[in-house]
Design a protein around this nucleic acid. Structure first.
Lengths: 183, 183
DNA sequence: CCGCAAATGTAGCGACCGCTACAAGGAGAA
DNA sequence: TTCTCCTTGTAGCGGTCGCTACATTTGCGG
C-alpha cells in the first residue's frame, strides 16, 4: 500500500521538478503535498529528512523514466548516445535535468545525501546503457561509463544553451573516420 | 586604476569561491568586501546587479587562471585532456569547480546572466584548448569543443565523487587501440 | 568659505525561513 | 466511558532575506 508520506513525496517531487530542488522550502513543499510544514517536520524529523526522502524518491523516478524508455539495443555507440540525448531533450525531461544539476551542484559543495543520490542515479544509468550496448562489446560496463561521461558533458552544454557544441562533440568523438593522434 | 567596486568584487569573489554562489546573500558578501549591504545596493542597483558583476568578474578570473597555466602544446588529445583534468583537480581550483556547477545549475533554471557567463567561460576555454592542440589538426576549434565536452562530463563525475569513472572515460574514448563500432 | 551632490551609516520594514510550544482532535484499548 | 497515544492545527519565535527611508558625512566646485 502507498503510505501517506509516499503520496506527499510524489506531490513534492512534482513541485521540485517544476521549481527546483535547492531553492525549495518547507511551506511551498507542504502546500504542494496538501499538508503543512508542521506535518513535514513531524514525519521527516527536519528539513534535511524531507530533502533526503525527496532525493531517493527522485532517483527512483529517474530510474523508472529510463526503464519506461527502454529501447532495444542499437548498432553503434554514436546511435546510443544520440538516442539518450534525444530522450533527455524531450520537454517532459526538462525538470529532471534541472533537478539533476541541482544535485550535481550540491554534490560539488559536499552535501552527502546529494552525492549519494547522484552516485545512485549514475549507477542506474550505467547499467541501463550497458544493457543496450551492441552484444559483441567485451566490456559493456566500462564502455557504458565512458559513454555516460560524454552524455553528461553534452548535458552541461545543453544546459548552457550550447546544444550545437554538444552535437559537435558527438560527431567528432564517436563517429569513425577522423580519429586520434598517437604518440 | 582599480576602482573601489573592483576591490569589492575581488573580495566578494573570494567569498563566493569559498562558500558558493547560489546561496550567497548581501550581508555576508558585504562583510567580505568590508562594506555594508546598503552600499552594495547603492552601487550595483540591486542584488541581481551584484550577482551580474560578480559573474563577469569570476569569468575573468577563470580565464586568467587558464592563461596562468598556459602549458605548451601536447602530443595527443588524451594528454591534453589529462592535463586539463589534473589542473581542475588541483585543490586551489576546487572553489572554481563549485562555482562552475552553481552557474550550470542556475543556467539549467534559465537564469540569463548565468547562461551568458557560462557561455563566455566555455568560449574562452575552447580557445585555450584549441591553441594547445597539435599543430596538424585541420579543425582545432571543432576538436576543442569535443574535448571540452568530455572534460565537462569528467568534471561532473568528479563532483559526484566518481573520479575513477571519469578516468575510465578518458582511457576508453581518447586512447588509440580499442575503438568504435561501425554500422 | 558656502553650497550641493555623492556617498555612507543607522534603523527598520515586511516577507520568508526552519522550527517549536501548546492545545485540540481522533481512534483504539481497558 | 475513559484513558492514552498518535496525529494535526494554530500561533508564533528568533533569525535572515532584499531593500528602503532618513539623516549624516564627505569631498569638490564656486
Amino acid at each position: 500500500m502507498t503510505t501517506k508520506t509516499d503520496n506527499w513525496l510524489g506531490a513534492m517531487a512534482d513541485h521540485v521538478l517544476e521549481h527546483g530542488l535547492n531553492t525549495a522550502s518547507l511551506r511551498p513543499l507542504a502546500k504542494a503535498a496538501g499538508t503543512s510544514d508542521r506535518m513535514l517536520i513531524y514525519h521527516f524529523g527536519n528539513k534535511d529528512g524531507v530533502i533526503a526522502a525527496l532525493l531517493t524518491h527522485l532517483a527512483q523516478r529517474f530510474t523508472d523514466a529510463l526503464d519506461a524508455n527502454s529501447t532495444a539495443t542499437v548498432a553503434t555507440h554514436a546511435d546510443l548516445v544520440a538516442d539518450v540525448i534525444a530522450f533527455q531533450r524531450r520537454p517532459e525531461m526538462a525538470g529532471f535535468l534541472r533537478v539533476w544539476f541541482d544535485i550535481v551542484a550540491a554534490s560539488a559543495h559536499g552535501q552527502s545525501p546529494h552525492i549519494r543520490t547522484g552516485q545512485q542515479i549514475i549507477a542506474g544509468f550505467v547499467d541501463w546503457i550497458a544493457a543496450r550496448l551492441p552484444k559483441d562489446d567485451p566490456t559493456p560496463h566500462k564502455t557504458a561509463k565512458s559513454l555516460l561521461t560524454v552524455i553528461e558533458g553534452m548535458a552541461v552544454m545543453d544546459a548552457l544553451g550550447q546544444s550545437d557544441l554538444a552535437d559537435a562533440a558527438l560527431a567528432t568523438l564517436l563517429l569513425p573516420g577522423e580519429n586520434h593522434h598517437s604518440r
